[in-house]
Design a binder for these strands. Structure first.
Lengths: 190, 190
DNA sequence: TTAATGTTTAACAATTTTGTTAAACAACAA
DNA sequence: TTGTTGTTTAACAAAATTGTTAAACATTAA
């Protein structure tokens, strides 16, 4: 892998996987095994590296949604597939969304462009139709989407805290996460 | 309010309410309207201020749980009350848990002591009993707890991102959040 | 009043983090 | 070969952030 890509991937590793949102350029360089100046050579500044990582995170998030949510398959199968795809990514990058939130909340971050996800809008429409059909309980499709994402993401994101609060081992927690898919499906389609 | 308390409250405001996890001591001092040296006077170092805020966040989280989860009231009423209490706090401090996670993930943070929550353990036992009674669907009480916290917290935490992805206004989003309680109760007790 | 104690501030010092530069190095074409 | 281009590094410079100090200030007790 070329160094530019290596730096980006390492930054994502630190931010999204390790949840180390305070990483300095030196720490990123060390983790990547490259000279810190290379970060400035390829990205000009720390801030531009962050912006690049941010943009790619949003893009990859959206392209993931695209990949599944446009599929013309049975709704129940689509949800099942979606949970598979999304939770696989969650386990790899549990803190990606947390990074995005932190950056959005950060002062110097002014992203003017619209980042609306067409795939999500399309999915919400489909959810509405399934509610009419009676496949799932009626309600606001957005709330259905909230429920779905919440049930997948939150236990993964909160792992370090819940492990402390409940004194649960790594293995036990991983087992609990692995069981989530079926639990979510039960919740949705009871 | 005395300055020491003011500094702590302001730090919590920045971290927990605004989600501004990168705040410097100068920014905290400015937001509090005090001289930055006061932070060193009262807390010795930036790190100790962070540790203090962290500890108080964990303690207040646990004491909140205590306040509700030990109540000897009907289970359904207890859940209803718990959602009220917890979501009220969530709206005030949406990023408190995110701050905790970020600090736990941060390298220099080695919290050795057990922070296990007796109230949660007690609650899990009660959930198990209610499952036996048939009030709620059978399963692992921890998973029930995961569902409950996820459904409350996640849509609140992800507000900035979901507003972008779905192009939703402040008012609309707030309305959606306000509707959450009933939706969660429906999910749980269908 | 003075003395003692705690609080607050500005100025300074130290440290950490980031950014720049020039030179070394590598690959490759002319 | 030489020259050109892009890559990598160390050394340096600049900026940002944190920590320390001494003096000013306030409050209260003796």
């Amino acid at each position: 892998m070329n160094k530019e890509e290596l730096i980006k991937q390492t930054a994502k590793e630190l931010f999204f996987s390790k949840g180390y949102l305070h990483a300095t350029t030196q720490e990123i360089a060390d983790a990547a095994g490259v000279n810190r100046s290379l970060i400035n050579y390829y990205f000009r500044s720390r801030d531009l590296l962050f912006q690049t990582v941010y943009r790619e995170a949003v893009d990859s998030l959206k392209s993931q949604l695209d990949k599944v949510l446009y599929d013309k398959i049975d709704f129940q199968a689509k949800i099942s597939l979606f949970i598979d795809v999304y939770m696989k990514e969650l386990l790899k990058y549990p803190y990606r969304e947390s990074f995005l939130i932190t950056e959005i909340c950060s002062k110097n971050f002014a992203l003017k462009e619209k980042k609306k996800s067409a795939a999500l809008v399309h999915f919400l429409k489909e959810v509405g139709e399934e509610m009419d059909k009676g496949t799932i309980k009626k309600g606001d499709p957005i709330q259905f989407m909230f429920n779905l994402f919440a049930l997948m993401s939150f236990p993964v994101i909160m792992k370090p805290l819940y492990q402390k609060l409940l004194d649960i081992s790594q293995e036990k927690y991983n087992t609990l996460i692995a069981e989530r898919k079926q639990i979510i499906l039960d919740q949705i389609f009871n």
